[in-house]
Simulated assay, not measured.
Amino acid sequence: MTNRKMMTSTAARTVALTAIALSLAACTTVFESDKVDYKASKKAAPLDIPPDLTQLQKDNRYAVPDGKGIATASGFQQQRGAAPAIAAASGEQIGQVPTDTIRIERNGNQRWLVIKETPEQLWPQLLEFWHNSGFTVETESPQTGIMETNWAENRAKIPQDFIRRTIGKVFDSAYSTGERDKFRTRLERRPDGSTEIYISHRGAEEVLTGPQKEQATWTARPNDPELEAEFLGRLMAQLTGTKVKEATAFVTNAPLEPQHAKLEGSKVVVDEGFDRAWRRVGLALDRVGFTVEDRDRVQGIYFVRYVDPDAVKKEGFFSKLFGSEDKNKEAQKYRVIVSTAQGATSTDVTVQTNDGKPETSPTGAKILKLLADELK
């Protein structure tokens, strides 16, 4: 009898351990959900309003939108009825931005918000938004209108199975998606005092390398337009007090404009005027992973740094993604030129070296190809 009990106990332990192992093996399986949860990955530090916020330059060459690819928040409210704005159940605060002062515009898979408030008014609200979303804003540049979050993990992708719910509090650190995300927010001022807000995503994933797959290495993964739309919708929900699910659906389904860019030799030709092309080039640089050190809108110049992943060893570059002080050592400086001939209806995008000469290297051609793919 005693032996039978021992065998039963041993079998039970074996089944339990096997179940745990299977659960851990499946920890990188994508959980099909439209939710994101970065709050559990890292507690964000309190954020302060930058003292030099007023240094955001006032640009005065933006074109008035032509009405294509635009959806207004007031129209969104009419679609969902006259119900009052409701705060999200996740604890987001009631928004203070009237729905008739905010709209979503879209070009290809690029989307952005247009809000009738100044960058100075929106900056602290954006800091609060990313803090509430579970991120730390690691980089702030009011001069270029850019803030960037830390790398964080979307814990909503982890399967919520029975064992995860049962022992997750004890072994939570053993569960990981093997992916990390960070987001860059760009603010562009319009001549009427309103602001365009762009959110771009960068992703990284952990892969096993070596003869025996014994070494884990972080590599880049493509940016996710769906995640960008998700956070634009969540930002819209926080600013206006609407429900997150309805706001994100509204952003995702914004009217689509036809593509307007193509690569022609040593330049990208954008079938749009300077004002709109300038803004879209800025977003494209963010999404591709350039670091914009400065910009001169009058001359149409973005001063950027770029690391060509083919020019350095993957271990040497991606191992520095998460905080190394030397991560920019291999970065080269370039100028991205946005120009329009007088009377022309299209805009040219070219690449120059740091000293203003035409960039004719393979890296220059690669930069143009990356920009052309983003601007289509």
Rank of each mutant, 00 (worst) to 15 (best):
T2K: 12
N3P: 00
M7G: 08
S9H: 00
L17W: 07
L17T: 12
A25Y: 13
A26K: 11
T28N: 14
V30T: 10
V30K: 04
E32I: 06
D34Y: 04
K35P: 04
K39V: 08
A45L: 14
L47D: 07
P50M: 09
Q55L: 13
K58N: 10
V64M: 13
G69H: 06
A71S: 15
T72Y: 12
F76K: 06
Q77D: 07
Q79E: 15
R80D: 00
A89K: 15
D100F: 10
T101I: 03
N107I: 03
N109D: 15
W112T: 05
E117I: 01
T118R: 09
E120W: 00
E120R: 08
Q121D: 14
L126V: 06
L127N: 09
L127Q: 10
H131I: 05
S133I: 02
T136F: 03
V137P: 03
E140S: 08
E140F: 01
P142A: 06
T144A: 12
E148R: 10
E148Y: 01
E148T: 14
W151A: 02
F162Y: 11
I163Y: 05
F171N: 02
T177A: 06
R184W: 04
R184N: 09
L187P: 04
E188K: 08
R189C: 07
R190W: 01
S194Y: 07
T195P: 00
Y198P: 08
G203H: 10
T209M: 04
P225I: 00
E226F: 02
E226L: 13
F231R: 12
R234G: 11
L235I: 04
A237F: 08
A249G: 15
V251I: 11
L256A: 13
E257S: 14
P258Q: 10
P258T: 05
H260R: 15
S266P: 03
V268Y: 01
V269E: 14
F274E: 03
V281W: 06
G282E: 01
A284F: 09
D286Q: 07
D286K: 05
D294S: 14
V298T: 12
Q299C: 04
Y302V: 04
R305D: 07
V307F: 03
D308K: 06
A311L: 07
K320A: 08
L321F: 12
L321R: 03
S324E: 13
Q332G: 05
Y334Q: 09
I337T: 13
V338P: 05
A344E: 14
N354A: 13
K357V: 09
T360L: 10
T360A: 10
S361I: 08
K366E: 13
K369M: 11
K369C: 04
L371G: 09
A372L: 00
